[in-house]
Amino acid sequence: MNVLISVDMEGVSGIVHPSETNPDRYDYERGRALMTAEANAVIAGVLDAAPAADVLVADAHGPFRNLLPEQLDRRARLVRGKPRPLGMLAGLDADTDAVLLVGYHARAGSGPGVITHTMSGDILDVRVDGRSLGEIGLNAALAGHTGVPVVLLSGDDAACAEFEELVPGAVTVAVKEALAAAAAVALHPEVARERLREAAAEAIRRRTRVSPLSIAGPLTVEVDLYSPVSVDLAMLVPGVSRAGGGRTVAFSATDFAEAYRLVLLLVQLASIKPG
Rank of each mutant, 00 (worst) to 15 (best):
M1Q: 09
V7C: 12
D8M: 07
E10M: 08
S13V: 08
V16M: 07
P18T: 05
P18H: 09
E20F: 01
D24C: 01
Y26F: 10
Y28I: 03
Y28W: 15
R30P: 00
A33V: 15
A33F: 11
A33M: 12
L34S: 03
M35W: 04
A39L: 12
A39P: 10
N40G: 10
A53N: 13
D54T: 14
V57Q: 13
A58V: 02
A60S: 15
H61I: 04
F64Q: 09
R65Y: 01
L67D: 05
L72E: 09
D73R: 04
A76G: 03
R77S: 13
L78A: 04
V79L: 08
R80Q: 13
R80Y: 06
D97P: 01
D97S: 13
L101Y: 09
Y104R: 02
Y104N: 10
H105E: 07
R107L: 15
P112G: 02
T116H: 01
T116D: 01
V128W: 08
G130V: 04
G130A: 02
L133K: 04
G137A: 04
G137H: 04
L138Y: 09
A143Q: 04
G144N: 04
G147Q: 09
P149S: 11
V151M: 14
V151A: 09
C160H: 05
F163H: 06
F163L: 01
E165H: 07
P168M: 06
V173D: 05
V173W: 11
E177I: 07
A178R: 06
L179Y: 08
L179G: 15
A183P: 01
V185Q: 06
P189Y: 04
E190W: 01
V191P: 00
R193Q: 15
E194P: 00
E194F: 08
R195P: 10
R195C: 03
L196N: 11
L196P: 10
E198I: 03
A201D: 11
A203Q: 12
S211Y: 01
L219A: 06
V221E: 06
V221I: 11
V223P: 03
V229L: 10
D232M: 10
A234M: 06
M235R: 01
M235L: 15
L236I: 00
L236D: 11
V240D: 03
F251I: 05
A253D: 10
E258K: 09
V263I: 15
L266Q: 09
L266S: 05
L269F: 13
A270P: 07
P274R: 11
